[in-house]
Design a protein around this nucleic acid. Sequence first.
DNA 1: TAGCGATCAATTGTCAGACAAGTTATTGAC
DNA 2: GTCAATAACTTGTCTGACAATTGATCGCTA
Lengths: 243, 243
Amino acid sequence: MLNMNPNTSPLSQQLHEQLLQLITETSPGERLPSEPALAKDLGVSRATLREAMRTFETQGLIHRKQGVGTFVVHPTHVIESGLEKLESIESLAERIGLPVKMGDFQIDERTASEEECKALLLETCETVTVVSRVIEAEDRPVAYLFDILPQDVLSSDDLDFSFTGSVLDFLLRRGDPELRTSRTEIGAVAAAPEVARALGIQRGDVVLRFVATLFSGEGQVIDYSISYFLPGYFRFHVIRRVG
Amino acid sequence: MLNMNPNTSPLSQQLHEQLLQLITETSPGERLPSEPALAKDLGVSRATLREAMRTFETQGLIHRKQGVGTFVVHPTHVIESGLEKLESIESLAERIGLPVKMGDFQIDERTASEEECKALLLETCETVTVVSRVIEAEDRPVAYLFDILPQDVLSSDDLDFSFTGSVLDFLLRRGDPELRTSRTEIGAVAAAPEVARALGIQRGDVVLRFVATLFSGEGQVIDYSISYFLPGYFRFHVIRRVG
DNA sequence: TAGCGATCAATTGTCAGACAAGTTATTGAC
DNA sequence: GTCAATAACTTGTCTGACAATTGATCGCTA
């Protein structure tokens, strides 16, 4: 049988979605259909199905046992809503049902500071684009976000009507460069004067800070961002696995 | 060819270790040997090799591209030192070269509060074991940790000379029950009076708080823990993946 | 009838070989 | 020298089969 899938990215994409849906629809502890049955249903070979299953097993969503079957394990959907997945604040807020709007917004183009230069892995400290914005929920600021990018990745001219404020969403929609992973450092800090002013709190009040470095598929640094969150409005969690 | 592997857990174990070693030995960006060559080297079929490779691809360690090859991607070891891996503060501190010792230490057995009862998924609010301790570095407290466990999982009688303060390390050494994942919620909070006293800071000072629920393989809650960290001594990060 | 061991069916784990699809380097014609 | 066709190599998928493990069934015996 020929592979008549026209997608550039493989049919695995669709297969993964179908399988994920099946898993989330199945109650924890229940057994999935056998591999031959599933493969026939989904129209793929058992080898392909098994490779996809391995993905979910690695993520801890399912548990396979020889001679018995494949079972859905407990925490299921929890994983999907954690920090493992990189998404914009807007998309996160929408998912958790918190209506947000954008407050103060600003774009600058300036020479990178030494710290920014180092974080972006720039040989020469060239011009960078700095996007800063405030997120508001329930008519009060709840997050203060910075994005710092090399000008050749994003310049102020690139931004058009489709730009909603989220640099991440914009880059994902544009599709170039290809984004892959983000290394996010998590800390609690006292608000600096500028942060306190943006968030409408007292200088020295406690805020949650994310410092993130966004990598492309080739390992280039695409975006260096600093985010300040007011405690109480967002809940971040991460799934940790035993060695 | 017969599968003459005597291990109860499959030969995948060994295959995984061999592959992981190969990946960590290979510089980021470099190409791995082709699948047929690797399969022959490791003495497994290509199908089995590919399933194992899928594990590492899911973890973001490698990147496969049709027609080109399989490449080791950049962050490699970074992932291994992030929050994805669940480990004790002692083990973490040792890895980052921060010498620590245990300060105040206390074990209580009392009836669970409503919140603890709910977190531990207990039908009836039975007796729980509470282990609290302070971690010191450079002769000052830097972390204040609580572990709350059902008494049938851990009672004060279980603790012997091998107990170093870390409940996690103790449970891992004992091997029963089997630990699997921990859901850790991350937040920044102002120190409550008790926390401030334990950490030697002012009431209201900013601390990083982890609230973790530790699951067994069967989905039971083994441990509910609350940890307070003084900013500056620990650096936590997480790798986030795009879509 | 109750108990128990052998047998059988179902399921996942692995294997072998083949072809499809995509990429890159080589080759050859102009 | 340029550029298109070609070949070689690599990953993606398919097919069919057998091995290993587990749970249920069946039949025998006491």
